[in-house]
Amino acid sequence: MIRKIEMQNMGKSNLGWLRSIFHFSFAGYYNPNNMNFGVLRVINDDLIDQEEGFDTHPHKDMEIISYVVDGELTHADSMGNKRSLKRGQVQYMSAGTGVYHSEHNYGNEILRILQIWILPDKNGYTPHYGDYMFDWNLRKDKWLKIVSGQTGDAPIKINQDVNIYVLELDNEKEIELAVKKNRQAYLVQIEGESDINGVQLSPKDALEITEENILVKSNGVSHYLVIEMKLQD
């Protein structure tokens, strides 16, 4: 089963320096029928102006992944980490028992990131931070697995049974993705347009997929992110 979610129907926020699209209830956008998709709690598509960002604030008991679409993201946290990442690179943080962090745009263009929150398999983990500088070409016309659970094979491992993939698909190319029995997935059309099992997606649209294999056909160069996980009742 698949279900399209159009960008126009998602939550929105405009603080001037920050323009956000909320895939699920967040901040001033609250919809009791749209709180999560399985263990996926948040996807925020954020545009952040230069010299702006999220000042130091706390998190607890959440697995947090940031995927840089455009610009440069600078992270700092209470564990002593400070890093800057660019297009296609990924940072992750297990907030666990509690951590403070900040995220800013100190680059020379508007920053676009996908901010992803995943519920952990239990509370109380020791906080942890990491990042990975993926070669962009590793996702060209093939699924690049960037995140997995602790027993998985991705370079980034988090405390939940999920797999996160990214892909850049050239014009008129096709690729399959298997979403097996007792599994579900959430796909974000980051850039470009496509046809997925006969459903047309435009930039920033999304697709819920439950126990169904998909065939992705690109219309122009397209960029995707998929979060695949255990099916939740």
Rank of each mutant, 00 (worst) to 15 (best):
R3K: 15
I5N: 05
E6R: 14
M7W: 13
L15G: 10
W17R: 11
L18P: 02
L18V: 06
R19N: 15
S20R: 13
H23Y: 10
H23Q: 14
S25M: 09
S25F: 00
G28I: 09
Y29K: 10
N31Y: 10
N31K: 08
P32N: 09
P32M: 01
N33T: 05
N34W: 09
N36G: 02
V39R: 13
V39P: 13
R41K: 15
V42M: 09
I43V: 03
I43K: 04
N44T: 11
N44L: 04
D45A: 02
D46T: 01
D49G: 15
Q50V: 15
Q50N: 07
Q50E: 13
G53Q: 10
T56W: 02
H57K: 03
H57V: 07
P58Y: 03
D61H: 08
D61A: 11
D61S: 01
M62A: 02
M62H: 11
I65D: 04
I65V: 12
S66P: 08
Y67E: 05
E72N: 02
L73G: 08
H75A: 06
A76L: 00
M79N: 05
G80C: 06
R87I: 00
R87E: 15
R87V: 01
G88A: 07
Q91P: 00
Y92R: 09
M93D: 01
M93R: 06
M93G: 07
M93K: 10
M93N: 07
S94K: 05
A95M: 01
A95W: 08
T97F: 09
S102T: 10
Y106F: 14
G107M: 06
G107T: 02
N108C: 03
N108T: 13
I110C: 06
L111V: 02
L111W: 08
R112S: 03
L114K: 06
W117F: 07
I118M: 00
L119E: 13
D121Q: 12
D121F: 08
G124P: 09
G124V: 08
T126E: 14
P127W: 04
Y129R: 11
G130F: 04
M133R: 15
D135C: 05
D135Q: 14
W136D: 14
N137H: 02
D141A: 01
W143K: 07
K145T: 13
I146L: 10
I146H: 01
V147I: 14
V147T: 00
S148F: 08
G149V: 03
T151L: 12
T151F: 01
A154V: 12
I156R: 14
K157A: 01
I158G: 00
Q160N: 08
D161K: 13
D161A: 14
N163C: 05
L167D: 07
L169Y: 10
E172G: 10
I175S: 06
E176V: 01
E176G: 13
E176T: 12
L177A: 13
L177P: 02
K180A: 00
N182V: 09
A185D: 12
Y186W: 13
Y186A: 02
V188G: 01
G192V: 06
G192R: 10
E193M: 00
D195Q: 14
S202P: 11
P203M: 03
K204R: 15
E208W: 10
I209Y: 02
I209V: 12
E212L: 06
N213V: 03
V216M: 12
S218E: 08
S218A: 14
N219G: 10
V221F: 06
V221D: 09
V221I: 02
Y224A: 10
Y224I: 06
L225K: 04
I227L: 12
E228W: 00
K230G: 04
L231C: 11
D233A: 12
